[in-house]
Design a binder for these strands. Structure first.
Lengths: 201, 201
DNA sequence: ATTTAGATTAGAATTTGATTCTATAATATG
DNA sequence: CATATTATAGAATCAAATTCTAATCTAAAT
């Protein structure tokens, strides 16, 4: 017997199961080194199913990446809503990143190390749109404080690196184990540094 | 005729030829997507030769990475020698990085996007040693200015992210084409920001 | 000058992993 | 309940990585 396929019972969450399995594999083995077979095995699905949903490893990675970035971004915008001045806003950018990375280190590790993935054109386009929307909103939020003279006037493309660069760099180190001090313990230092770097004086 | 191998005339520079070919391929196709065959073809060597020298794509990448980092680090230490106060030192860290990336964008692009590579244990150990030596030297250089009270006293592991994080983040954007303004045009802004973030006040 | 050991090169053979393809079953829709 | 669509399975195929053996070169020793 065992002629051909014996598809499973309906598994509506199959997509998410595969994503979770993939993240776990990436965490264990590294993105580059995990094989489709490992993901398939961990997810308990067939090759066919995996390709049906995602079209390959790159597709799985894209989906994971987009989900992660979207969550990170949405959280920041939410917290900015509660801020009422430039300093609070700047500090929130830094602290939110630290919190988010601390809360989901596996996903954060993936996001950080996935920068190099060759996303397909569609995924790239979607990401570009996400970034544009997000940074558009962030700049709108901060714009008034620059105009009002609370923050230095700088070339626009330099604000994000100045404010977020340091905490992201430190997070990368922490996530890869090169540093032990938890993010929470140094986040305030980075928040201070960011504010000192952009405040009008 | 053409029974077996017909090794070439001695090619002492073979190692470097392969490294150059690899960098060119990585630049064209991306690290993940270039195949051994492409590198072999561009280098004009055999598979055997490539594996003999590097043991595979990962080995080629490691060697390239270590060479690049070493050059970057050495350049900084050299330039720090000419600095005589904390502000000069901090600014030099930023400006040197900007210069270096501008001068060899291909290598820089590789370094930045190679973070995710699964280096072999030996390569990892070598890199760790390189970093320890380098950052040891850098901390020695800056230490006196912290003691003297010219710079803020901060958790030691935060200085590098604060000073170098922003320019590295911007460089990553520039290298991947998401930003047009050349590094040289914004480097001073990042140098100012770095100094403002760490100066005693 | 010969011999020998180690380093370097070559490319066929093998292995491993990615991707495609066809068949089967589940689910939804009229 | 017929039909279309979606989801699943896994064998077959394809492509790339890696191994392996043989040939050639280089340099040191005699």
């Amino acid at each position: 017997m065992s002629r051909r396929g014996q598809p499973n019972v309906a598994t509506p969450g199959r997509r998410q199961v595969i994503l979770d399995a993939a993240l776990a594999c990436f965490e264990d083995t590294g993105v580059a080194a995990t094989t489709i077979e490992q993901i398939r095995d961990r997810a308990g699905c067939s090759i066919g199913s995996l390709y049906h949903h995602f079209g390959g490893k790159e597709g799985v990675a894209s989906a994971l990446f987009i989900d992660g970035i979207s969550d990170l971004n949405a959280g920041l915008l939410q917290r900015l809503d509660d801020c009422s001045n430039a300093e609070q806003g700047v500090r929130t950018c830094v602290l939110h990143y630290a919190d988010w990375v601390t809360r989901q280190p596996e996903l954060a590790r993936f996001l950080v190390h996935a920068r190099e993935i060759n996303f397909a054109p569609e995924a790239r386009a979607e990401l570009k749109a996400i970034y544009q929307r997000h940074f558009g909103a962030v700049f709108t939020w901060f714009g008034r404080f620059v105009l009002r003279g609370d923050m230095k006037q700088l070339p626009p493309e330099t604000y994000i690196p100045i404010i977020s660069g340091p905490i992201e760099d430190y997070a990368r180190q922490w996530l890869s184990g090169r540093t032990r001090t938890p993010l929470a313990e140094v986040a305030e230092v980075f928040a201070d540094a960011a504010w000192n770097a952009v405040r009008a004086r």
